[in-house]
């Protein structure tokens, strides 16, 4: 009962904050001095990217907890979070490219460390989902994917290092596109990050519930079958 109430509360908060963030991002904040209106996508882009990092972090943590406890509850959380992570990561990459095109003149820059790390994370978690799809049993699915999730996250600092080394040998002229972030823009950004975080928690709760129901259906099927 309590859980249901919590879910409703989170969903209401998510809706309210999303509405506020839309207002703040599109109407309240003035257009950027250099980038103009294009910059507005930035509020949703940063929030998506943030959620993808958060989601992958949760997958890692839940994976560790699963290996410790062997409780499928944690495995369900890890899987659900990875799925949501992929979704937001894809959104983050698309919105980022849309923003980059008019600002940098290109959709993608390999030498940008944030883009690079996000791309690597995206690949790792696509591999993570592929692994789960090919597992032979429930236990092995949970075990192997938890181990792979842990390996994947440990790899990230090394990707970071690899990119740094790579940049040393391929020096590029950095286009200054930052401009100054006015207080109203910072506020909009914070609000949209909060809105997306509530949205993430809400989707995660629902997704985990769906997994739980699937498991119950399996159990019932088993009973009926013999």
């Amino acid at each position: 009962m309590l859980k249901n109430k919590l879910r409703i509360l989170v969903s209401i908060l998510a809706i309210i904050f999303i509405l506020i963030s839309v207002y703040f991002a599109l109407i309240y904040t003035p257009p950027h001095e250099i980038m103009g209106d294009v910059q507005r996508i930035f509020y949703f882009h940063v929030a998506s990217a943030w959620i993808s990092y958060l989601a992958f972090g949760v997958t890692f943590f839940a994976g560790v907890m699963y290996l410790k406890s062997k409780d499928f509850k944690w495995d369900n959380i890890a899987f659900s979070s990875a799925e949501i992570g992929i979704l937001f990561c894809t959104l983050g990459i698309i919105t980022g490219s849309l923003w980059a095109r008019p600002i940098w003149g290109v959709f993608w820059r390999w030498e940008d460390i944030k883009l690079f790390i996000t791309f690597v994370l995206w690949l790792i978690f696509i591999a993570y989902l592929a692994l789960r799809a090919n597992a032979k049993s429930r236990t092995s699915k949970a075990n192997l994917s938890a181990v792979f999730g842990i390996i994947g996250l440990i790899c990230i600092p090394f990707s970071f290092g690899a990119n740094r080394i790579w940049q040393q040998y391929h020096p590029t002229i950095l286009v200054s596109s930052e401009g100054s972030l006015q207080p109203s823009m910072a506020l909009s950004l914070i609000i949209s990050v909060i809105a997306f975080t509530f949205l993430y928690i809400y989707i995660l709760l629902v997704r985990v519930d769906i997994e739980k129901m699937k498991e119950e259906i399996d159990k019932l099927k088993q009973k009926v079958g013999g």
Partner: peptide, 8 residues
């Protein structure tokens, strides 16, 4: 012990 749906 069970494998999937099958109670062995």
């Amino acid at each position: 012990k069970s494998f999937g749906f099958l109670q062995v």
